[in-house]
Nucleic acid binder design. Structure first.
Lengths: 329, 329
DNA sequence: ATCAAAAGCAAAACCGGTTTTGCTATTTGT
DNA sequence: ACAAATAGCAAAACCGGTTTTGCTTTTGAT
């Protein structure tokens, strides 16, 4: 049932009904009697406005686009949950998509969201989204990047202290007495991955140790990360400590180690916590990003920009904590 | 830039532009020359139609509402990913929300989605959503329930063979020689949980064994499931095998077992696979639901109803497989 | 040469709302 | 008693599209 039908039924005009519904009876100078009559009828038939029509008229869709790499991932999934919960408090709903790291797909997704007139976008960009992001900025679209930035571009951003936390992780392994520390990461230009890598390299260089790096690919189906890590570890038996750059690399790494049955000689630490990690024996230390805090900061930053489009860009780094779990070395 | 501005610029009418954009130049009898001129200009300025306006006019939003329990969960997250991917093939986008098992919240979420004129809804209902679901059915809204049904209500539904798979799980433990098999589940009326429970009871009864049941609550924050399970196991030292009813119950159970340092005496099997499960020692068997297959079936069923609103309700049970991982008994 | 059919498009109506404008009837002020 | 102010609302314009209708003009057939 539409507003016009209601108006017709009550012998008033659309505008009158609309004003009453939106609590503008006063300023629209609608008599209390008429207002009440309209409210009663609305209540009686359980009228719910068509949000599309409303959005078209007001220019506000009360929908936010959330673009992540993979909603099924143990980092992005919970982040998405918290983002959704915080956004709900501000009466926004979420239109989401997973890019799976695909630039072309990511660009399409963003475009579709813009077509659907989202009021803002929360984006974990793929590594070549500069053009899309610049377009959004030019259109003054409320936008918050998270997890990773676009190099050389000023935007709103929420992330963690990738470099510092990674340094601590690697230094922890050194303090534990491991001498040949390897790192497994993905072959990606994403800035957060580069920072984690740089931290590893810096710490090793400062300690005059040799790097043992393995890049694995998770994107194309042909690559088998577990196998790659297994082969690499077999070829480098001197490695006694490992730093994984992110959650799914860690899972692949652990599988590889299991194959080799060498877990007892490795000191392990990974970026990102996984709930099951604390159950593993030997235990695996990790860098834990405070997911809820990150989500809160993202939403807060977005809401600020929604309320003041002239606001200058903001950047918030949320510190991660090192979760030490002693391996039974 | 809007269609009217384009029309004005080219000295044609809105309708002409619209017809050309939508590939209806032929049937609208627009000359090839005009059509090309319009197409060229569209291309030049990179015009993208306002999807809201389009939806309002056509009555199709090309958006599907996806309501899950928790998008951060290792079952719902990956399911959501696959649903999104399949829906994209049909050019639908996803508006999602997590209910966290809250009936009131779930009802609100569904209402907001309906207000936003979603073309259909994919729903893992909370345990008291009968009224909402009936309303949607009455409105002939394309709807697919999954993971759990509403008792006594005919709807589209995709799920797994909870009862059969659970029976196999419990029987597997028996075959392994475990004599006192307990079950940990949530205190919920959700039909899929009831089916899993019933299977456990039936198998035990058939074997004249005594039930060892623990219901834990994950909903209210005050309950501490790990502690509850720990206490229960301590009080029942005779238990030598455990069946967990779902993924997060399993995680809590494993934590409890770790506290007791009793893992070596327990045969374990859980509903739902977790990627890290295969890495645990001792290994934990599981019932693995084929997530991608389930997602595919859900989307297929929804698309069918979108294309034929008169279609009768369908129900698809996707078989789960038992993933046996031998515990080092 | 004449008339019907078809081509080519403009205009208008519609989707369901919001917001501004403008008209009439009643108050208020003097 | 009369003008000005205000109350109360209807009507219209608008958001940005789609779709139907209807008006000219051209083409084809006889």
């Amino acid at each position: 049932m539409s507003i016009s039908e209601i108006a017709k039924h009550l012998n008033v005009s659309k505008s009158t009904v609309s004003l009453v519904i939106n609590g503008k009876a006063e300023e629209g100078r609608i008599s209390k009697a008429s207002a009440q009559r309209i409210r009663d009828y609305i209540e009686e038939i359980g009228y719910k406005p068509n949000a599309l029509a409303k959005s078209l008229a007001t220019g506000k869709s009360r929908t936010i686009g959330l673009v992540v790499e993979n909603i099924g991932d143990s980092f992005f999934g919970p982040i998405a949950l918290h983002i959704e919960e915080y956004l709900r408090k501000h009466e926004y709903q979420v239109l989401y998509s997973s890019t799976m790291g695909d630039n072309k797909l990511a660009a399409e997704i963003v475009q579709t969201m813009l077509d659907k007139q989202v009021d803002g976008i929360i984006l974990a960009p793929t590594d070549a989204m500069g053009a899309e992001v610049e377009r959004m900025l030019k259109n003054n679209l409320p936008l918050v990047l998270f997890d990773r930035k676009i190099p050389n571009l000023q935007t709103n951003y929420v992330g963690t202290d990738n470099y510092e936390a990674s340094r601590q992780a690697v230094e922890h392994l050194l303090q534990q007495g491991y001498k040949n520390i390897g790192m497994v990461t993905i072959d990606s230009q994403q800035p957060q991955m580069q920072d984690r890598l740089r931290a590893y390299r810096d710490v090793l260089a400062e300690n005059r140790l040799e790097e043992q790096l393995l890049y694995t690919s998770f994107l194309d189906r042909r690559g088998n990360p577990v196998k790659a890590i297994t082969t690499w570890l077999r070829k480098n038996p001197q490695i006694d400590g490992l730093f994984f750059s992110t959650n799914y690399v860690c899972v692949a790494g652990l599988k590889a180690i299991r194959t080799l049955d060498r877990e007892h000689v490795l000191g392990l630490i990974t970026f990102d916590d996984l709930e099951m990690l604390e159950l593993m024996r030997p235990q695996i230390s990790c860098i834990r990003q405070p997911l809820e805090k990150i989500a809160k900061a993202i939403v807060h930053m977005l809401i600020e920009q929604l309320n003041d489009s002239g606001k200058s860009f903001d950047e918030k780094i949320i510190k991660s904590s090192i979760q030490i779990r002693e391996s039974s070395l």
